[in-house]
C-alpha cells in the first residue's frame, strides 16, 4: 500500500488531508510539524510527502530539505501545501527539493489527483 506522510500543524487540515487520502486508499502517517515528520519518515519509509509550509519548530521547506538529504528520500515525491500565492515560497520550496505544490484552498479531489499525479 502506498504510504503518504501528511504534515500539518493545524489539526483540522491534517485530519482533512489524512481522511481524504485514506478514503482514496492510501495509508497515511500523520505528523504535526517538521521535527515530528522527520522522525516518522526515518522510522517508516513513506512513498509521498504532503506537507504544510508554515509550521512551528521546523517548517515545511526545512523538512523537505532535510528529507532530501537522506539517501532513502532522494527521489521521493514531496508536495507542499501552501497558501502563498507569490513565487517566493514555491521557489524556496523547489530549491529545497520539493516536487510540487498544492495551493490552498484545495478540495479533496484536487488533493487526490495531485498525489496520484506524482506517483505516476
Amino acid at each position: 500500500m502506498t504510504v503518504v506522510l501528511a504534515v500539518d500543524d493545524s489539526a483540522s487540515m491534517r485530519q482533512m488531508v489524512s481522511f481524504t487520502l485514506q478514503t482514496a486508499g492510501f495509508e497515511v502517517v500523520e505528523a504535526v510539524d517538521g521535527v515530528d515528520a522527520l522522525a516518522k519518515a526515518k522510522d517508516t519509509q513513506v512513498d509521498v510527502v504532503v506537507s504544510d509550509v508554515n509550521m512551528p519548530n521546523m517548517d515545511g521547506i526545512e523538512l523537505i530539505a532535510a528529507l532530501r538529504a537522506l539517501p532513502q528520500y532522494k527521489f521521493t515525491p514531496m508536495l507542499m501545501l501552501t497558501t502563498e500565492s507569490g513565487g517566493d515560497k514555491k521557489s524556496e520550496g523547489k530549491a529545497a527539493g520539493a516536487t510540487g505544490w498544492i495551493i490552498k484552498p484545495f478540495n479533496p479531489e484536487q488533493l487526490v489527483k495531485t498525489v496520484n499525479k506524482v506517483l505516476g
Partner: peptide
C-alpha cells in the same frame, strides 16, 4: 502563523 492557519482552514 495563527492568522495564516485560520485563513487556510477557513478557505478550505
Amino acid at each position: 502563523r495563527a492568522a495564516h492557519s485560520i485563513k487556510g482552514g477557513s478557505a478550505t
